[in-house]
Design a protein around this nucleic acid. Sequence first.
DNA 1: CTGTGTGAAATACTTCACAGCA
DNA 2: TGCTGTGAAGTATTTCACACAG
Lengths: 224, 224
Amino acid sequence: MDESSERRSKSSGPKGSGPVPKAVVSRLSLYLREIQHWVREGKETISSTQLGKLLGFTDAQVRKDFAYFGQFGYPGIGYRCGELTAAIRSILGTDRSWKVALVGCGNLGQALMGYRGFADRGFEIVAAFDSDPTKFGRSLAGRTIEPLADFARIAAERDLRMALLAVPAPFAQEVADGLVAAGVTGILNFAPVTLSLPRTLQVIGVDLAIELEQLAYAVVQSRS
Amino acid sequence: MDESSERRSKSSGPKGSGPVPKAVVSRLSLYLREIQHWVREGKETISSTQLGKLLGFTDAQVRKDFAYFGQFGYPGIGYRCGELTAAIRSILGTDRSWKVALVGCGNLGQALMGYRGFADRGFEIVAAFDSDPTKFGRSLAGRTIEPLADFARIAAERDLRMALLAVPAPFAQEVADGLVAAGVTGILNFAPVTLSLPRTLQVIGVDLAIELEQLAYAVVQSRS
DNA sequence: CTGTGTGAAATACTTCACAGCA
DNA sequence: TGCTGTGAAGTATTTCACACAG
C-alpha cells in the first residue's frame, strides 16, 4: 500500500463506470468468502486461476470481474489477499458494519438471531420484533423482543435501514409496508411471497422451498 | 384435459430439447409460487402478462420460458392454472414427494426442521442427524435425532437421496463427503463454504450472510 | 515463465414484433 | 379483440487469445 496504490482506481474502473452486471456482484461475495479461507491458510496472494478453480469459474471470468472496479492485480504474482478483500468490501459496502432489524421471531427468526455468520461479515442484528404479545420482553440471543408496533420509533432511534423479514407469508406484505413507512430501504425477505413495494426499495428474497425445488430439478436432470 | 392434451408435448418442447437455460428453471419455481396464490384467489386461468406483472418480468419472457417445455397456453385465454402447475411440477420433479434428510440440528437445523413451507411444496424431512451425543434421541418436530454415524444405514433404509446440510462450516466438507459415500445425490448446503465434491453431485448453496451482503450493495447503489 | 488486463469473438439470454387461433 | 408461440433482432455475459509486466 505505497506508491502502487495510486495507480489504482477506486470503484468505477476501466469499464468506464457503466453499470456493473448483477452477475458480477453476486460473484464478488463468493470471491470474498474464498479469499478469506485462503488467508486463513496463511497465503498472501491468490491468482485468478486459483480463485477460479475454487469456485468453478474460468480465470478470465475472475479477472474480468475485478476489472469492472479497477486494477488490483500484479502480473506474475496474482492479487494480494489483503488489498483484494479491502477492495471487495468497499465495493459491496461492507467495509463498515450494518445494523439490521429482525422482524418475526418464530422458528426461522430465532435461528437467524442466533446465526454467527452475520457478525463475521459485518452485520449486527440490533433489534428483534414480533407481533405476538406473549413474546414481548423475552430475550433472544441477548436482545429483547419488542412489539412490532414500536418498530418505527425504535428504527428511528437506532438508525435501522435493513431488515430480515421472517414473518408468516400471509402477513409479509402488510408488515413490509410498515417497514417501508418506517424508513427501511432494504429487506431480506424469507417469506415465500413476492412483495410489491416501491422500486426505491431493495428486496432480496430467500425462499428455502424454492432452493430445494431447484435442487430436485438438478438431481432429476443429472440422471439424464 | 381431453382432445387438447394430445397436441401438447410433454417436456422437450419446440426448442428441440436443447438444454434449458438455468435462468429459465429458476423462474419456473417463481411462476409456480405465484400461480398457486392466484388459484387461492379463485382464478382459473392466468395470462403471460398477468403472471409477468406479478414478478416484474415481461410477458414475452413468460411465454418463452414455458415454450421451452411445450405448448401450455390457449390463445385468447391464457394458461389454465391447473394444467400449468401440473406441468411445472412435472418439469421440476416435484409432482411426487421427496424425502429429505436434515444433517445438523443446531440453530438453523432446528428451524429448518420446523419450517412449514417444505411440506407444502412436496418435501418431507424424514430424518434428522447430529454428531453431538447429548442430542441423540431427542425429538425435533416429531422426529428423533439420530447419530450422524448412522447416516448411511438409515439413508439406505429410507431411501434418502437429498440432504439439508446445516452443520458448522469447519465440518461441512467432511460431513458432505460422508453423505456422498452414503449415496446422497443432492445437497442443499447452508454452510458458508464451497464444497468440493464429484460433479455427479448436485449442490445448491444458501449463504445467508452473502444474501445480506448483496442487499447491502443494492442499498448503497440505490443512493446513486 | 507466470500471471494480469482487455479487445474481439462467441454464447447466452431477453425483448420485439407479428402471424395465427379462439 | 385478447392472447399464445416464435423467428429475428437486440443486449448481456462469458470465453478466447494475446500484448505486456514483474
